[in-house]
Simulated scan of single mutants.
Amino acid sequence: MQKLYIWDFPTRLFHWLLVIAVSSQYVTAEILDDAMQWHFYGGYFILGLLIFRILWGFWGSYYAKFSQFVVSPQRAWLYSTTFTKSNYKPSLGHNPLGAYSIIFILTVLLTQAISGLFITDDIFHSGPYYNAVAEDTQNVMNWLHHQGFNAIWFFLALHIGAMLVYKFAKKQNLVVSMMTGYKQHKSQISAPVAQNHWLKFAFFASLSAIIVYLIVVTFAPEIIDEFYY
């Protein structure tokens, strides 16, 4: 049994910040009163996180790259058929089924963040592009934004279920691994370890913040207040 550094710090930071941010989005939208402005801020923050994860998925650490864990549907199906058999082989990084769950949640959250730019709470707060589109588009974005949270609940249930299965059936504590970055692996073969790539991390984090600022502030159409006397 060897202990390998799999999840680099930027990947782990993204993961836990996303958990906190999505949780706060539920609180500001469903529990707190008069917190909608914070809900919009949280949406912009999540958009920045997602942009960072996409960049990191192409140019980040080894196990965080999409090219390392996104496989064909055939390979994902084959993995699922061996899960309960003796020839099951644990993955060092994301397993094939986990890869598709990541693509799913990134797509859902990106849809949530983008659609939030085009909606309003019908009282005081509106997304920066709400007045830039026709009413039909506003309605579509509003529907996508509200239905998307149902998909997030569905993913959350699957995610927690999967973590429990891996912990008790496969003796793999995925939560601890995502906190420490290390995974225990039975194979003694040499395997690449993750690198934190601090300079790239700082660059992509800054670039993500700049992109969000450009989207939300610089490129957003000016809101013209109309007064009638």
Rank of each mutant, 00 (worst) to 15 (best):
H125C: 05
T137G: 04
P73S: 03
W143R: 03
T82H: 11
F104E: 00
V70W: 00
N87P: 04
D122F: 06
L92Y: 05
L109K: 08
S61T: 02
F124H: 11
K89D: 10
F118E: 15
Q147T: 13
T111H: 00
K85A: 13
L92P: 08
H94A: 07
W59K: 10
S72Y: 01
K89C: 08
P128H: 01
I102E: 08
Q74G: 04
I103T: 03
Q147K: 09
V70E: 10
Q147M: 14
G57F: 03
A76G: 02
H146M: 10
S126N: 14
S67E: 06
L144M: 15
Q112H: 02
T137F: 11
A134E: 11
W56R: 01
L110D: 02
P96E: 10
G98D: 04
L106I: 12
L78V: 05
K65L: 12
D136M: 10
D122A: 10
S101H: 04
R75M: 15
S115Q: 07
L97F: 12
S91G: 08
K89F: 00
R75L: 14
E135Q: 15
T84Y: 08
T81Q: 13
Q138W: 00
A64M: 01
T81W: 00
T82Q: 09
W143I: 06
N131D: 12
Q74I: 13
S67H: 04
L78W: 02
T137E: 03
F124I: 15
P73W: 04
V71D: 04
S91L: 01
V108I: 14
F104P: 01
S80T: 10
L144E: 07
I103K: 00
Y88F: 15
L97K: 02
I102W: 01
E135W: 07
H146N: 14
A64I: 06
F83D: 04
S91E: 12
F104H: 03
L106E: 01
W77I: 12
P128T: 02
T84S: 06
Y63S: 12
G116V: 01
H146E: 11
A132T: 11
T81I: 13
L78S: 09
I105T: 03
Y62Q: 11
A64T: 05
Y63Q: 13
Y100E: 06
Q147A: 10
I123V: 15
